[in-house]
């Protein structure tokens, strides 16, 4: 059991309507020097969030108390760049359990699924609707329903579906991770390895 189970999440959301948010922005390389998984949330979006003297940048969304919640809504191609799982850790440690976008970079999506953050990919039109709803009312509640694979803007009932493969879905619903699965089939792996030349 690696992380909390995910079922239905109802929460306000933090909008970040920027495209191509890369993992260097999510967590800059200089904060990757830990040997334990601790405290990454403090440096989430570090250089967008803080000035060089460590004072908060007032115009950045995470520093605006009007916006909060367990859902981060990002622009297209979210999480491109480096394979650092630290980016997903930072998102999780800060308190987000779900990232919504119209498109995710592959490795970031995988990393999220491996640590219990749900990457929910919706249509560009629905993403726009979410952004507009939050802009109009920052207290807008979203419901992310993993069993049904839907996201709903509760005030209006508008909703969209997202894809997740059945195996990953059941992992998230149960809070299991891949390594438990792999350890269970170690004998098959050993057998397979005997026939690999390398």
């Amino acid at each position: 059991m690696a992380y909390d189970k995910f079922n239905i999440l109802t929460s306000t959301a933090v909008p970040l309507p920027i495209e191509n948010v890369d993992t260097d922005q999510i967590i800059p390389a200089r904060f990757l020097k830990a040997t334990e998984r601790k405290g990454f949330g403090d440096n989430l979006f570090r250089d967008w969030r803080y000035n060089q003297d460590n004072s908060p940048k007032e115009n950045f969304i995470l520093n605006n108390p009007i916006y909060s919640g367990k859902i981060l809504v990002g622009g297209k191609n979210f999480g491109s760049g480096s394979s650092r799982e630290h980016a997903a850790w930072a998102v999780y440690d800060y308190g987000f359990r779900c990232v919504v976008s119209s498109f995710f970079a592959d490795i970031f999506r995988n990393n999220c699924l491996n640590i219990g953050v749900l990457p929910a990919q919706v249509s560009p039109e629905f993403l726009e609707k979410i952004f507009r709803a939050i802009e109009a009312d920052p207290t807008t509640q979203l419901e992310v329903n993993l069993p049904d694979q839907t996201i709903t803007i509760l005030a209006t009932g508008e909703h969209d579906n997202f894809d997740i493969n059945a195996y990953k879905k059941s992992n998230m619903l149960n809070g299991f991770d891949d390594i438990d699965y792999l350890l269970n089939i170690k004998e098959n792996i050993r057998e397979f390895a005997q026939h690999r030349p390398l």
Binding site: S83, H86, A88, I107, N111, I115, D178, I179, L182, L183
Partner: peptide, 22 residues
């Protein structure tokens, strides 16, 4: 291809990872 730290752990432990064929 590049992998995340959870996957590094999987390879260390079992020499395998779980991947959907691209």
């Amino acid at each position: 291809f590049g992998i995340g730290t959870s996957e590094v752990e999987m390879v260390l432990a079992t020499q395998c990872i779980m991947q959907t064929k691209p």
